[in-house]
Simulated assay, not measured.
Amino acid sequence: MVMVYVDGTPGRLPRRRGLGEIAGRLLGSVPPTGLLLGGIISVQFGAALAKGLFPVVGAAGAAGVRLAFAAVVLLAVWRPSLRLSRRQWLVVLGYGAVLGLMNLAFYEALQRLPLGIAVTIEFLGPLSIALAGSRRWLDVLWALLAAAGVALLADLGGGASLPGILFALAAALCWAGYILLGAKLGEHTAGGSGLAIGMAVGALVIAPFGVAEAGSSVLNPTILLIGLGVALLSSVIPYSLELEALRKIPPRLFGVLMSVEPAVAALAGVLVLGESLRPAQWLAIMCVVTASAGATYLARKR
């Protein structure tokens, strides 16, 4: 349960506590594989929706709007206390900074690359976590199978933008840090309090880039409404689900399970953005889904 410090108004205490309690209980009742699958679907369809904002506010502007709305929603839901220890603040600040930079780098890559390719390259982050922490040969097998799917989906010989690839690699590095720091955040904070503060930190980190690129365009009501939807789909829902999952499974297994991410991204590109998939990419989907299913099976055996 999140410890909430209120302003002395007794009548408001049940509402503040109740919302966090309900959210915590709902998340706690879902198996980790279900949490991750829900988060993956949400974040990829949110990314497809966010791409529609780029012509108006740019990649940095879209990332800024997303994190700002996400921070407001999470702070309202969890009402976190700022009375954290020095160790807790270090974890929260590190998590928030990595979270903000990951979103900024990914949106910059998404502006230059198809959704499936951007996510595929970004996936090198969790894949490296899976390989580095592996102690069983079957874990390595699932990771390698996922890597084969990643290679098929990437198809970097198709005129992909070099700056886009570099931004995607930067996002991959941040994603690896996000996984490791997310596990620490789950250990040092309760409920979604650390996530709420971290999201606010991330929004502040990338705010200068967003304001510089978008300017007053972000104040358009339509942009704000779409931005709220993107924030819910791409940040509030998936990060809450992933943080809860990281409390139940080790970072290594988390990275392997996330192998389904490029496949869902490619499907979101088809359904929302009208991007086409070639036979090799459908084969890639089979590879990553199989890897995810195998990793899930091993998780139940442990």
Rank of each mutant, 00 (worst) to 15 (best):
S193Y: 08
L82E: 09
G133L: 04
P251R: 00
S217H: 12
L257P: 00
T33R: 04
S81D: 07
G210Q: 10
L181T: 14
P251S: 10
V218E: 09
A203N: 13
V57Q: 05
I197N: 14
Q88N: 01
Y239L: 11
Y5R: 08
A280F: 00
P163M: 09
A62T: 13
A168L: 09
A70T: 13
G294F: 03
P262A: 11
V56A: 07
M258A: 14
L257R: 00
L283D: 01
A170D: 07
V2F: 05
G58H: 10
L246N: 10
L185S: 08
A214T: 02
L93A: 14
G186V: 04
G46F: 12
L110N: 01
K301P: 01
V92R: 08
L90W: 12
A293C: 02
A109W: 15
V72A: 15
G18Y: 10
G194Q: 09
A151H: 03
G61A: 11
S85K: 08
V201S: 09
G96D: 07
V256S: 05
V260S: 00
V272C: 07
G125F: 06
T296G: 08
V288D: 10
A190M: 12
F45C: 02
W78H: 13
G24Q: 07
D7M: 04
H188K: 11
L35W: 03
A214N: 06
I206P: 10
G94I: 03
E261Y: 03
M102I: 00
M102F: 10
A70L: 07
V30L: 15
A147Q: 03
E21I: 05
Y107M: 15
L99R: 04
R15M: 13
S42Y: 07
Y178R: 06
A48C: 11
F54H: 03
G227S: 03
A143C: 06
L153E: 13
L104I: 14
V140Q: 08
